[in-house]
Write a protein that binds this DNA or RNA. Structure first.
Lengths: 219, 219
DNA sequence: ACCGCCTCTGGTCAGCTGTCCAGACTTCTC
DNA sequence: GAGAAGTCTGGACAGCTGACCAGAGGCGGT
């Protein structure tokens, strides 16, 4: 780094403060956008609707975001940060396999119950990435970090159980993601047992992804 | 039914013929709509785009379908018919557990490979049902019939293996659906191994959903 | 040959969407 | 407090969307 003259140092300080305020506002607007997006879904959410629900004018969104894609991309990243942080303590705080299993099942179940709109938005946006290349990179990155998160939990569980995980990281994620998504559909359809089914499904599946060390599976 | 006079019989015959032609045209238009929908996704497909790609005028779609929802609902039903019929022979033609396992894994893998656009549309529309009640009933019906289809295959597998399925019907479907969807994301991201991973994932998961009759699982 | 119904066309309309922008307002610096 | 930079507003615009409709064309029945 080059040593700064007083002027450039002051300018940088100002600039940083402005950048912080700018970033803060972006986050605030993105949070408002997330709220509306999770309510109506990608296809039915316009910038004007977001603005109206957030109390801002629709113009301000174009001041802080290049375009709609830029805004939603930022929202996806925000989602990831909130989501991964929430689960990461499961693996680190546990002291036994059974505790990991219970915590994991409960965490998925309560998240599906409490954050239903946000999760359905995630699946919506992930699907959009199958059609629109704009979101593809960011969605893939979030999906990957979710996959790693699940993998951390499952390998922690396997370590406590003294066993090995038989599936690939990707397949393990896919299995729990499928259970989660089905629970979301169930919740939305008014099936009161959906959350309990998810918890029970996770509890039942988790041990079956392991095999004792040194034994070969039938293949 | 009331006995028909000659006139009403003729009228009915005509009417039936017209109904057939009408239904035929509906199916034809729905097929064209499916093609465009699977290319662009729900959010980015307009009736005019569908019409242009199909060679019809945009007006004709309003003649055969009440509105856009009516059209897409019909498309969903068409999808189901095509999809379920394709898989149903797996369970009925098999003679051993291993054969069911191989056929099932191969069927999922090749379907993901060959019908990628149609499947991503299905997931798109299923997600729309989480936001828009218009599709909810029909989507739920298709999802249920897919669930039953998977269940038939898995129970057939269990029967050949002389074992029981430990998960609920819904959880079994969720697991394979998750694997399938992850493969779709992989394919779209250009991951060449995605199809093979799906096949291998299905092969590995399937036996682990069973337990020997008479033995209790750890719970 | 004529008539009535079915089919289909393409124009029109109101409403919404993303984007841009001129200008008002606020905040900060000197 | 003057000026500049940053922030925000709301109107304007072009393009698109779903829906509607008047009328042309075709087909079958008599």
């Amino acid at each position: 780094m080059v040593a700064s003259t007083p002027e450039t140092a002051a300018a940088r300080r100002i600039e940083l403060r402005q950048v912080d305020k700018f970033a803060l506002r972006r986050t605030e607007l993105a949070a408002a956008a997330l709220a509306t997006l999770s309510e109506f879904g990608y296809a039915r959410t316009s910038l004007r609707e977001i603005a109206q629900k957030s109390g801002f004018s629709h113009g301000v969104f174009h001041y802080y975001f290049r375009d709609k894609v830029d805004l939603i991309t930022y929202c996806v990243r925000e989602y990831k940060a909130a989501c991964v942080a929430h689960y990461d303590e499961i693996a680190s705080n546990a002291t036994s396999a059974e505790q990991v299993r219970s915590s994991f099942a409960e965490a998925l179940a309560s998240s599906a119950r409490d954050d239903t709109p946000m999760h359905r938005l995630w699946y919506d946006l992930r699907n959009q990435s199958l059609f629109d290349t704009d979101f593809q990179a960011d969605v893939a990155e979030v999906d990957d970090s979710l996959e790693r998160m699940i993998w951390r939990i499952v390998t922690a569980y396997a370590a406590f159980a003294g066993a090995e995980v038989v599936l690939t990281r990707s397949a393990v994620y896919a299995v729990f993601d499928g259970l989660f998504q089905q629970a979301l559909l169930g919740i939305h359809a008014g099936n009161d047992a959906a959350v309990d089914s998810l918890r029970e499904g996770v509890r039942q599946v988790l041990p079956r992804l392991l095999q004792n060390v040194g034994r070969e599976s039938t293949d």
